[in-house]
Design a protein around this nucleic acid. Structure first.
Lengths: 285, 285
DNA sequence: GGAGTAATGCAACAGATGTTTCATGCGCGA
DNA sequence: TCGCGCATGAAACATCTGTTGCATTACTCC
């Protein structure tokens, strides 16, 4: 029996294959269920290639022929449907750090409190401008929130400290603006400064933090709490913060109603116009 | 097209069938996946019945022949396997979007497969240099991975396309380097270009993607798969990608052993020296 | 620019597929 | 006990399967 899944094998070997075999291979990867059930000739007709191509593809992958490849696809499919991954992960007893981390992340996410998100989203929705601050490892989360909010509010969302000393940005904070602050212990000096500036500037402050008494959360109108420390890894986990940020963005979008939708469509059209994305492939099998 | 599932049909008609047909029918009901994939003769051999029995069974159920029955079994199976996740996510009626999103994220995380992470981490560990690519909304995840890896490998990890046209970075890829590519459908042009450059540059490629047949994952030595589309929100969710990235970084750190630890301590000392963090507060409540 | 190699499409091949026919076996009613 | 009819298994059937050899094309390296 073969140890690697035929799809993995296919993916790895694909670039080194001749053009038509690549095309056939992509078709198989995208239609693996059909490849496992329909006949080779049917598949070839659907893919617009001569039947022999699929035999050759299978042989190029190291199988004796198409039938062997199909057999492997069937087995892979059977195994996939059998047990969910989590069960398979827990079957692996000790020592498996990745499995333990993912399990811990999943549990931490399940414990998050969604209740304060709605109110925070309303605050964002009502603010004329939104500032987002996150430094060090929280920078990624901040950027993500920034990206998602700009999809439907492109001209009113800004990231604090994008290209240099944050002092310049901090001076621009105005009463009525909303500020989202993202951090966890130990708190970077930058985030504490940003929090103070936001407070003193009269902004509505939304804190994403791991502790309710975080320095940067003092005076915040809304607190979305996540757990960064439970991960068995060596670094705190940011999945909780990210999940909250995403929920916040989505809720804010929903509040925007039709206007948000229009803005989003405009943004999408703009991206499509500069061909930012590769042509859409078929739907997942 | 037939409206009732072939299995239901079978179950209902079973009592009125002759003995051997009943036996064959039960076998089909209990092994529907095999019935859909193996040949009739194989099935007959496994069930201990002559092949003709299955043709007759199909006809007794109202199908023109075994092939028609199998077709129905395949369709039933495709429908079942097609949308397992999205169905569950949409089950949450309406009302509380943030809660539904967090729940969906938690579930998606629980379904992640940690198995390929270890091998990918080993590849990272062994590479002299590591490149990380992620664009648009995946930029945040890429940055986070970049940040965590630099904590203990400050001089060998770089983000692709940090400050301008990525062409400059792409030219610097060398054989033996490892490249981590993060994206989901629809794939940005930049990530596909980066993937090709990495492949042609002889790098060991690690793909974080939502589909095994993603264009950017072709030829990748390792594929860490996440699910971006399950979220009930309007944008894809990146928590899965982030969780995998964190697991990857942690596993890579663990492989580094004492050397990694020393580097991490150095980094921490450097941060403390420039007073990047505010004084440590109490332990979490 | 030409020789050599790899890739591709086509058509013929042997084998396997699902179906059907036919002979036999079995049970039930007269 | 004898027919009658349905259920059953084996074998022959046409068809379709996956494969392979061959001729042609495209490409690459001198």
């Amino acid at each position: 029996m073969r140890e690697t899944s035929p799809i993995d094998l296919l993916r790895q070997a694909l670039p080194g294959l001749p053009p038509r075999l690549q095309a056939a291979g992509r078709y198989v990867a995208q239609h693996d269920f059909d490849a496992a059930t329909r006949s080779m000739r049917d598949l070839a007709a659907a893919a617009g290639a001569p039947p022999a191509t699929f035999t050759r593809l299978a042989q190029a992958l190291g199988y004796t022929g198409w039938e062997a490849l199909r057999e492997a696809l069937i087995e892979a499919r059977r195994g996939a449907g059998g047990a969910p991954y989590s069960a398979r992960a827990r079957r692996n007893p000790g020592g498996d750090l990745p499995a333990a981390m993912l399990a811990a992340d999943a549990e931490a996410l399940a414990r998050l409190d969604p209740a304060p998100v709605a109110a925070a989203a309303r605050a964002l929705h009502e603010a004329p401008r939104i500032w987002i601050a996150g430094f060090r490892s929280c920078r990624g989360v901040a950027q993500l929130l920034h990206y998602q909010l700009r999809l439907f509010r492109p001209d009113s969302v800004r990231l604090i400290g994008g290209a240099g000393p944050e002092d310049l940005d901090l001076g621009a904070l105005r009463p009525g603006d909303a500020a989202v602050l993202i951090s966890f212990a130990p708190y970077s000096r930058a985030i504490v400064l940003a929090a103070r500036a936001a407070r003193e500037g009269g902004c509505t402050t939304i804190a994403l933090a791991d502790r309710p008494h975080a320095a940067m959360a003092e005076g915040a109108a809304h607190l979305l709490r996540f757990d960064a420390a439970t991960s068995p890894g060596f670094f705190p986990s940011l999945t909780g913060a990210l999940a909250l940020a995403q929920a916040l963005a989505a809720a804010c979008f929903a509040l925007g109603g039709e206007a948000s939708l229009v803005r989003l469509r405009e943004t999408e059209a703009r991206l499509a116009a500069i061909a930012a994305y590769t042509p859409e492939q078929d739907l997942p099998s």
